[in-house]
Amino acid sequence: MSNGAQNDAKKARDDSSRAADTDRIQLAQLLAYAAEQGRLPLKDYEDRLTRAYAATTYDQLEELRADLPGSAVSPVRGGKQNPAPSTLLLALLSGFERRGRWNVPRKLTTFTFWGSGVLDLRYADFTSTEVDIHAVSIMSAQNILLPPEVNVEIRGRGVMGGFDRTILGNGTPGAPTVKIHGFSLWGGVGIKRKARRPRG
């Protein structure tokens, strides 16, 4: 076999063992389920989650789930992402809360008017590698709580109010990127990285 053919064969093997974003997201969901069921302590869950997002091969992903019951990481490896439907969370003279385990869509709008809102992503299942949040707060307040590992980009602004821009930066390599934009008028949008708490 010529050197060129050998190189092509090696590249094909490497490509077939390379994990896709979809596989990392599916494993993250499996780990979250195991933690929710009490089969993974919080510290172990967060350690495996960090390693899952950084994984580049199927072998690395399989190693992280080998002792957990459930199906294979992905029945169809490298499948296309299937993000949850776009969502609107609305609080007009009222409030909304989204906490616990829920599917985070690729596009999410939060709107509060004389109300309040809490959007907690710490225990949620990401369904895509990028999340776009459009946050609007008018004469009201809303808080967005992010897990430590996500990457964050913020482009919001406050007019006679506040739009938190203090947590810009990188999280874990390979983790989802949360892009937050919008504005507040006589109100506030608070954005914080917050540690998960053990479930008791």
Score class of each variant (00 low, 15 high):
93 L>F: 11
146 L>H: 14
75 P>H: 08
92 L>G: 02
92 L>H: 03
71 S>A: 10
98 R>W: 10
79 G>V: 05
89 L>M: 06
88 L>F: 05
76 V>Y: 02
132 D>K: 09
130 E>P: 01
82 N>W: 09
63 E>H: 10
59 D>E: 14
127 T>K: 00
66 A>M: 15
94 S>Q: 09
143 N>S: 15
114 W>E: 07
117 G>F: 08
142 Q>V: 02
80 K>V: 05
138 I>D: 07
90 L>S: 04
60 Q>C: 13
126 F>G: 03
70 G>D: 04
116 S>V: 02
115 G>V: 00
121 L>N: 05
104 V>N: 03
82 N>Y: 09
91 A>C: 08
77 R>N: 09
125 D>M: 00
82 N>E: 13
116 S>N: 04
129 T>Q: 07
50 T>H: 00
53 Y>K: 02
54 A>R: 09
85 P>N: 13
84 A>D: 02
61 L>K: 10
78 G>A: 05
57 T>W: 04
104 V>L: 05
97 E>F: 11
122 R>Q: 05
73 V>R: 00
82 N>A: 12
126 F>R: 03
81 Q>P: 14
139 M>I: 04
57 T>G: 03
142 Q>C: 06
136 V>H: 13
138 I>H: 03
100 G>T: 15
58 Y>H: 15
103 N>H: 07
101 R>P: 01
123 Y>T: 06
133 I>V: 09
90 L>W: 06
85 P>F: 13
73 V>I: 11
112 T>Q: 00
51 R>V: 00
72 A>Q: 14
106 R>S: 15
113 F>P: 00
80 K>A: 10
118 V>N: 06
110 T>P: 07
131 V>G: 02
97 E>N: 14
83 P>F: 02
148 P>H: 06
62 E>Y: 12
106 R>Q: 15
125 D>T: 07
65 R>N: 08
62 E>Q: 13
141 A>T: 04
126 F>N: 12
114 W>A: 12
